[in-house]
């Protein structure tokens, strides 16, 4: 029986270390797993970073990978979650010629209906920003593409989990030892 490939979100709490990104991405590379997206930022804990990595793999692959990630010295904790177990979003930006905003009334409707924010407008171009699910962003991109997009960029997924992570407790336990 072939196991189902799912979109999984891997969350990693780490110390802030220069080489760590390399170490973590190497774990995927070695197993020829494509990283769909990767975001790193400060986490809720001071001086602790959080990676959010999206991959399409089976859960048994994910378990092994999380094990290998956790094994890295500067990784505090790693988890994987299915889409149902997380609240997630992506964000994107469009740069579009300003004259289109006035020539194509359709664009204004698109902006309004899709809850897209206008970041800036000047004589040459205007910039839109939108966060949401991938399909919403994709559909907006298709719609705007009809008029011409000067630049488009989409971020990786960011996600929080529905259940607790207990990383703070873990670190407290170390400090009290």
């Amino acid at each position: 029986m072939k196991e189902e490939i799912k979109t999984l979100t891997i969350s990693i709490y780490t110390e802030n270390n220069i080489g760590l990104l390399n170490r973590i991405s190497a774990i995927f590379q070695r197993r020829t797993i494509n990283i769909e997206s990767l975001t790193t930022s400060q986490s809720e804990i001071e001086n602790v970073n959080r990676f959010v990595i999206v991959v399409n793999i089976t859960e048994s692959q994910a378990k092994k990978i999380v094990g290998q990630i956790e094994k890295q010295i500067e990784v505090i904790r790693a988890y994987y979650h299915t889409d149902e177990e997380t609240i997630y979003t992506e964000s994107c930006m469009f740069k579009i010629k300003s004259k289109l905003l006035f020539e194509e009334p359709q664009i204004q409707n698109l902006i309004k209906d899709s809850n897209t924010r206008i970041v800036t407008v000047n004589k040459e171009f205007f910039v839109l920003e939108k966060s949401g699910r991938r399909n919403e962003i994709e559909s907006l991109r298709r719609d705007l593409n009809a008029f011409g997009i000067m630049q488009f960029v989409r971020s990786g997924r960011i996600a929080v989990t529905k259940d607790e992570m207990k990383v703070t407790e873990m670190l407290a336990a170390f400090n009290n030892k």
Binding site: E15, I73, E74, N175
Partner: peptide
């Protein structure tokens, strides 16, 4: 000054 390492919090 040298002090031996007794633990690493993430490990």
């Amino acid at each position: 000054k040298y002090e031996k390492c007794k633990g690493v919090r993430s490990y």
